[in-house]
């Protein structure tokens, strides 16, 4: 049982390493979100379960921690993705589907145009110029 726990700890640390390497290598915030939350969730779950199996005194609290991570980690990743899309962080050029834009009814091009307009309006000198005119 102790050997099984150690193997699970090793697998969990490898998955955590791959997830962190993914958020270093991926090109885009939404791609980074996939690597950085899914792989790391599996890695942390496997590591904590391995610790619980290797020493039975840790099993109760490790199951509690596993339940907590399973409940909260998807919530935080989904909140980051949603607020990133609401803040009009651009996707990759070859992104295929944008379900949020289809639902709300604005495309990525419209979002880019709106952001450049807002950047003009936020520039204080042009705002002062427009006010003087």
């Amino acid at each position: 049982m102790e050997l099984l726990g150690h193997i699970l700890i090793l697998i969990g640390s490898i998955f955590s390493l791959l997830g962190a390497f993914g958020i270093l290598r991926m090109p885009d915030i939404y791609n980074r979100l996939q690597a950085g939350t899914k792989a790391t969730t599996l890695g942390a779950l496997s590591l904590i379960l391995g610790v619980g199996l290797a020493n039975p005194a840790f099993l109760g609290k490790s199951i509690l921690l596993i339940l907590f991570i399973v409940l909260t980690n998807p919530i935080s990743s989904s909140t980051i993705a949603r607020s990133g899309r609401r803040a009009d962080i651009p996707m990759l050029k070859n992104a295929v589907v944008d379900a949020y834009a289809e639902k709300v009814g604005k495309t990525q091009a419209a979002a880019d145009k709106k952001r450049s307009n807002r950047a003009d309006a936020d520039d204080p000198q042009t705002a002062v110029k427009e006010a003087n005119v």
């Binding site: 640390s13 915030i29 790391t40 590591l47 840790f58």
Partner: peptide, 15 residues
């Protein structure tokens, strides 16, 4: 996102 990942990995490391 990096700080979120950091929190999860550090939690595993403390275990």
């Amino acid at each position: 996102l990096a700080s979120d990942t950091l929190a999860i990995i550090t939690s595993g490391l403390i275990v």
